[in-house]
Each structure stands twice: as C-alpha cells, then as structure tokens.
C-alpha cells in the first residue's frame, strides 16, 4: 500500500509492480511513478504540458 502524493488516497500495489512503473490514482487521476518497493514509494510522474497552438 502507498499513499497518493496528490490527494492522500491509499493505493494498492501489486507484488509484481516494478520501480519506474506508472500507476494511476483512482481518486484524483494523478499518474504516479513508482520510485521504490521496500518500502513502497511513489512520486508525481512528469506531466505533458498542454499546448493549444499559441
């Protein structure tokens, strides 16, 4: 289990989750990068900036 860095939701991680994998928070939709497994750690994954062509 790990806490979403953005909204505090508790996220379950599978046993076969690997460092570097992206998981999505079901509550707030944040993409989180797995940075560690023992203990489980995540950080907000880099986001693509919106480009409206201006």
């Amino acid at each position: 289990m790990v806490e979403c860095t953005e909204c505090g939701a508790t996220l379950a991680m599978n046993e076969d989750t690997e460092v570097g994998e992206l998981i999505t928070c079901g509550d707030c939709g944040a993409d989180l990068e797995v940075t560690g497994m023992t203990p489980p750690m995540v950080q907000l994954a880099p986001q693509e900036e919106e480009d409206w062509g201006e």
């Binding site: 953005e6 909204c7 999505t24 509550d27 707030c28 939709g29 944040a30 993409d31």
Partner: peptide
C-alpha cells in the same frame, strides 16, 4: 461522487 481528476474527460 467526488470528481476532481487530473486526467480524463470532465475533470
């Protein structure tokens, strides 16, 4: 439902 999403339609 709590709707406050960082991605997807109608966030």
């Amino acid at each position: 439902r709590v709707v406050n999403q960082k991605a997807g339609l109608h966030q």
